[in-house]
Design a protein around this nucleic acid. Structure first.
Lengths: 339, 339
DNA sequence: AGTGACTCTGCAAACGATTACATCAACGAC
DNA sequence: GTCGTTGATGTAATCGTTTGCAGAGTCACT
C-alpha cells in the first residue's frame, strides 16, 4: 500500500526542464537562473518531492551517517555523550547510527568498518581489538573516552590526573587509609585511574594495600560487591575512591543498607559526575567529566577528518574537575592514622 | 588517501564469471553451482570485497535502517529500551539510526519520515504533532511507551493501572493522605498516571487534594522541586507517588538533605524501576516497566510491519509490576488519618 | 562581424549493486 | 531424433541521483 513517491524525473517533467537542472536547482541554487529555479521549486512543492538519500549517497560516494560503537547501550553513562555527539552531527548533515559492541557478534565489527556503512566512526569501546580498527579502507575513526596506543585520535579526559585529584582531596580531608574500587580489568580507564591513584598515594607516602583494591566493572552491582568485601575486612580503609559514579552509588547504597554511615564511617569519591550524583544521600563528591562536551568535540574532530579526507587527526584532552559534595568528611577519630 | 575498494565487477573479473553470478553466489548460494560458488568466494576473499550498502539498498528500494525518535537522548530512561531495540534489529539486518527530537528542528522531523531514510520508525516522543506522523508515503511507524489516539500501533504498559497499583499499595500500608508528583503537562504518560492515581483514590474514598499535586517533568530536578513544595505545606501528605523514578530520586534526596526521613516521615513510590532504584537509600519501591522488553517488542512488531508492507499493525500492552522495597512504610502514627 | 568570456541548460555517463529475462547445455521420455 | 524440462549462467535494464562535458545563447569589446 506504499505510495509511489515522486522522483527527480517527475519534477523535471512537471517543470519542463532536465533532471540535471532540477538537481542543480536544489543543491546549487546559484548555478541556475532565477525563473527556472522558481519553476523547479514550484514543481517540487507540488509533487512533494524529496530526494532519495540512497541514490544521492551512492552517487556522491558517501553515506551521510556516522557510526557510534558503544560497549553497552544500556549504560546511561553514554547517553549524554551521544546527545552531545548528535547535537553537532545533525546540523552537519550526518545521521547517527548506533551499534552495541557487546550484543553484536565480533565479526560484525569489521563489517561495520569496511562496509562503507558510515562516513566516520566514533568508538567508545577501548577493548576492541586494535587490529580490527587498523584495517585499511576504513573510514576515519575517533576514540571517545577510551583510547588505544598512540595511533588513533581520541577525545578524553586525563583519567590519571582525575584519580590523583580524588586521592589528594581525601588526603587533605585527613584520610590515610584509602581504598579503590576498580573498573573492569584490561580497560584503559581502569588502568589509568588505578595508576593515577597509586601514583598519588605513593607521592603522599601512603601504601595502596592489595586488600583495599576492589575489582569491579564500573557498574552498580560491582559497587555493592565492593561494599560486601569492605564489610568483611578486618582493617578497613576510611575512604574509598570509586572508578565510576555508578560504582560509588552501589557502594554507598549497600554500605548504608548495612548500617554503615557515609561519610561519618567511610568517605566516598566517585568519577564522572552523572546527573544523579548530586541527588544521592549523601550527595556524591566526584570527579566531573564534561560528557556532553566530549561528545561534541568528538563529533567536531570527526567531521573535520572526514572533510579533510584524513584518516588521522589531533587528539584532545578535556579537563576534569573535583566536585565537592557531602560524601567526604574527615575520618572517624577512633581509627586514627596508620603508624 | 582512501583506498579504492573492490566492487562486484572486480570479483566477477577475477573469478571469471558475470556480476550477476557473483551477486547470486552471495545472496542466493543455492542458485549457483558448487564450483562456481567456490571460485567466487575465493575471489571475494582475495579482493576483500564487501558489497556497497548504498548501491544494494538503492536497487532493493530499502534502506536497511530503522529510525528511533527520542525526545531526549540524555535521559537514561531510554538507553535500556534502545538496547532492547538494537538487540532485535541488528540480527534482523537493520541498523539503528537515532535522532533527538528536542535538539532537532521541527521541520526536520517530516523530512525524516518522508525522505525514505529509514524502513521504519520507532517514536518515543508522544508530544510530536500527530499530523506530522499522519503524512502519506511514510514508512511504518510504531510508538513506544507513549502513544497517540488509536490510529498508530504502540508498545507500552498500562500506565493508569500502574498508578492504581501504586496508590493501592500505599493505601494498604495505611496511608490516607497521598500526593502525586506529576510528569510534564500535556504528556500522555503524565495524564494517564494521574488519571489512574485519581481513579484509585476516588475508589478508596480519598480525595486527591490540589495542593498535593506537584507539577514536574519526570526529571530529577523536578523531584527536588516537589520536595521543596512539600516542605512548605501546612498539611503534608504522608506518601507521595512519583510519576517517574528519577523524580522519586530527586524527591527523596532533597527531603533527606532537609532532614526528613524516608520512609519514617514520608513514603515514596516511583515508576519505571530504573537500575539505580534498588541502590538508593532507602531502596525505592516502584512500578516496574519492562523496558528492555518494550524495546524488543517494538522492534519485532516493526519488522513484522515492514515485512508485511503494512502501515498499521497490532499494539501491545506489557504488564507492570509492583516492586516492594523500603521506601514505603506505615505513616507516622502522630499524623493519623484525615477525618 | 568576429571573438572571447560567461551563463544557463541538456545529454549521458557514472555510482554499484540486484534481478527479470534470455540463453544454452544436458538429460530423459516419447 | 525431437521435445520439454531443468539448472546454471550471462545480458542488460533498473534503482534515482549527481556531474563532466558540450552546446546554445547573450553580451561586450575590438
Amino acid at each position: 500500500m506504499r505510495q509511489k513517491v515522486a522522483t527527480i524525473q517527475d519534477v523535471a517533467r512537471l517543470s519542463g526542464v532536465s533532471t540535471a537542472t532540477v538537481s542543480r536547482a536544489l543543491s546549487h541554487p546559484d548555478r541556475v537562473a532565477e525563473p527556472t529555479r522558481e519553476a523547479v521549486l514550484r514543481a517540487v512543492r507540488e509533487t512533494g518531492y524529496v530526494a532519495n538519500p540512497m541514490a544521492r549517497n551512492l552517487r556522491r560516494r558517501r553515506t551521510g551517517s556516522i557510526l557510534a560503537l558503544v560497549p553497552n547501550l544500556a549504560n546511561p553513562f553514554f547517553s549524554e555523550i551521544l546527545s552531545g555527539l548528535a547535537s553537532v552531527l545533525t546540523p552537519a548533515g550526518y545521521g547517527l547510527l548506533i551499534a552495541d559492541t557487546h550484543t553484536d557478534p565480533a565479526g560484525r565489527l569489521t563489517y561495520y568498518l569496511e562496509s562503507g556503512l558510515a562516513d566516520g566512526v566514533v568508538v567508545f569501546d577501548g577493548t576492541l581489538p586494535e587490529e580490527a580498527l587498523a584495517t585499511r579502507r576504513r573510514p576515519p575513526v575517533i576514540l571517545a573516552c577510551e583510547w588505544m596506543g598512540e595511533t588513533l585520535p581520541s577525545v578524553r579526559v586525563d583519567n590519571a590526573a582525575g584519580a590523583e585529584i580524588a586521592i589528594r582531596h581525601l588526603h587533605e580531608m585527613g584520610h590515610r587509609r584509602i581504598g579503590h574500587a576498580m573498573g573492569p580489568a584490561g580497560n584503559v580507564l581502569t588502568e589509568s585511574r588505578l595508576a593515577g591513584a597509586r601514583r598519588a598515594l605513593e607521592a603522599l607516602g601512603l601504601p595502596l594495600r592489595e586488600d583495599w583494591i576492589f575489582r569491579g566493572d564500573f557498574g552498580l552491582a560491582s559497587g555493592s560487591a565492593a561494599a560486601m568485601t569492605w564489610l568483611g575486612l578486618k582493617e578497613r580503609p576510611t575512604a574509598v575512591f570509586c572508578a565510576s559514579d555508578e560504582t560509588a552509588c552501589g557502594f554507598m547504597g549497600a554500605l548504608q543498607h548495612a548500617g554503615i554511615s557515609v561519610p561519618s564511617d567511610v568517605s566516598v569519591v566517585g568519577f564522572d559526575d552523572i546527573e544523579v550524583a548530586a541527588h544521592l544521600v549523601p550527595p556524591l563528591t566526584t570527579i566531573r567529566q564534561p560528557r556532553r562536551q566530549i561528545g561534541r568535540r568528538a563529533g567536531e574532530l570527526l567531521s573535520a577528518m572526514i572533510e579533510a579526507r584524513a584518516l588521522g587527526g589531533p587528539s584532545e584532552l578535556l579537563p576534569v574537575e573535583l566536585i565537592r559534595r557531602q560524601s567526604v568528611a574527615p575520618p572517624p577519630p577512633c581509627q586514627g592514622d596508620l603508624p
